[in-house]
């Protein structure tokens, strides 16, 4: 069994702008994940929608929700319905594509987000499993092709083995590490940690303060 819902607030919550927890709040969460990975302002955003997302994104406000997440807004941010205009004002090019085939990550609520600017490019494949909860099933960044099992939270860190050991030690004090995976590319190593429970904001801040390459989803 995949335990996606670990907190009572995954079920009673989130507080959000309507109309759909999976297609609006969940889309915002996928956008936020992409924003956390990119850690920079994109010049170009391309969103590929599949299945239910492709058929109903306009009706559900998925477009402004996912863009608002990429801008770093929360699902209850009052700017959420205006996110597309706000992004365009910043000179960001936005493209939405309704893909006709089945989801490559095997879920009806799939969005694949491509972000790029002059210095980097990433692809994040997320699916919205219901009630605003999401899974991230593929991330392409810095030559790495990361394929998490899905349920969040996930922590990613690039670097050498000593840095990895350092992060592992810090995480062990905070939560249970359910799984660890090492990826290699021409840029070096990347470690993925599947965590048992969510970290608190101050714990994430401290991890990032010690190592700014850490990505927490």
């Amino acid at each position: 069994m995949t335990v996606n819902y670990k907190s009572v607030f995954d079920i009673i919550g989130p507080i959000m702008i309507g109309p759909s927890s999976s297609h609006t709040a969940g889309a915002c969460a996928i956008g936020r994940a992409a924003n956390s990975i990119f850690k920079d302002k994109p010049t170009d955003i391309v969103i590929h929608y599949y299945e239910s997302f492709a058929q109903t994104h306009k009706g559900h406000g998925t477009d402004y929700a996912i863009i608002s997440g990429i801008l770093g807004f929360a699902p209850d941010d009052s700017r959420l319905p205006y996110a597309i205009g706000l992004a365009q004002e910043q000179g960001i090019n936005i493209t939405f594509i309704e893909e006709p085939e089945n989801s490559p990550i095997n879920h009806p609520n799939t969005a694949i987000v491509d972000l790029k600017n002059d210095s980097k490019q990433i692809t994040v494949a997320g699916c919205s499993v219901g009630g605003g909860t999401i899974e991230i099933r593929e991330i392409k960044m810095d030559g790495f092709d990361i394929k998490p099992k899905g349920p969040l939270p996930i922590l990613l860190v690039q670097g050498e083995e000593d840095e990895q050991q350092n992060v592992t030690a810090q995480l062990a004090n905070l939560t249970k590490i359910n799984a660890q995976q090492k990826y290699q590319s021409s840029k070096g190593n990347l470690y993925e940690y599947d965590l048992d429970s969510r970290l608190k904001a101050h714990e994430i801040d401290e991890l990032v303060r010690n190592n700014d390459k850490i990505v927490y989803l």
Binding site: I11, I12, G13, P14, I15, M16, I17, G18, P19, S20, S21, S22, T24, A25, G61, D76, P81, G130, G131, G132
Partner: peptide, 14 residues
Amino acid sequence: NSSMGVVCATPTAG
């Protein structure tokens, strides 16, 4: 919810 107002999803917005 349909008017794009603020709700608490329980378990979903719909």
